[in-house]
Amino acid sequence: MDEPVILIEDLHRVYTMGETEVRALDGVSLSIGRGEFVAVMGPSGSGKSTFMNIVGCLDRPTSGRYVLEGVDVSSLDRDARALIRNDKIGFVFQNFNLLPRTSALENVELPLLYSRKHRLSDAGQLERARAALGHVGLAERWDHTPAQLSGGQQQRVAIARALVNEPTILLADEPTGNLDSRTSDEVMEIFQKLNDEGRTVILITHEPDIAEYARRVISFRDGRLVGDVPVGQRRVAGRLAAPAPVAPGPGPRAPEVHP
């Protein structure tokens, strides 16, 4: 299994807006192997989200090659990309993007409803969704709607949703951007656990200490890859000591029970 999960060669993404051209990605080449945990950093507007959208098959490159698990996906049409997203990609967003007034379980079940890989019975779908919720430690909250969950819990539901279809890669665009540092640590703990189980994780962040949870950090500037370094001292989540500064938030919460 030496073949990289993601192989990118000379990737360009140019937005044309009237006269002006924005080179959001300007010649990026990169390879990411199975089981890696990569943090993507860089100043605002450097092209991180653009990169992520292309890796997640939401967008297509203007030029360049993107090979996902040995398949060139750079020129697939909308429907084919939707299939790939359902099958191989799990998205986690900064603002969670859960369906409102919908239980955690049904939110997690959603990707299965569009799946062609897993043609499960209704009961099978629910069981799978329940298992994914259990994986992020929220089995008991299955019937809570997003409004009844804290930010950290909502993000964990979103991670369960990203997981439920057993994707090849997990993509997270600033998943801790809306969370305080204690909750961020809880969320990063889950990402680390998933990575330890062998999943490939790519995560955008602005915060250097979040990047330290990863094993490798790549940096963008002006649409170019300007840094690619392994993390020397990997930070391990779940060991956040009490003195860590806690941003003003909903106050201390009882620790979640992890099965």
Binding site: G56, L58, R78, D79, A82, L83, R85, N86, D87, F91, N97, L98, L99, L110, P111, Y114, S115, R161, N165
Partner: peptide, 16 residues
């Protein structure tokens, strides 16, 4: 719109 975006991101095709 946002709901539609989420559905598409997790793999719903236009036809779905």
């Amino acid at each position: 719109t946002r709901e539609i975006g989420v559905r598409m991101a997790i793999g719903a095709r236009g036809g779905d």
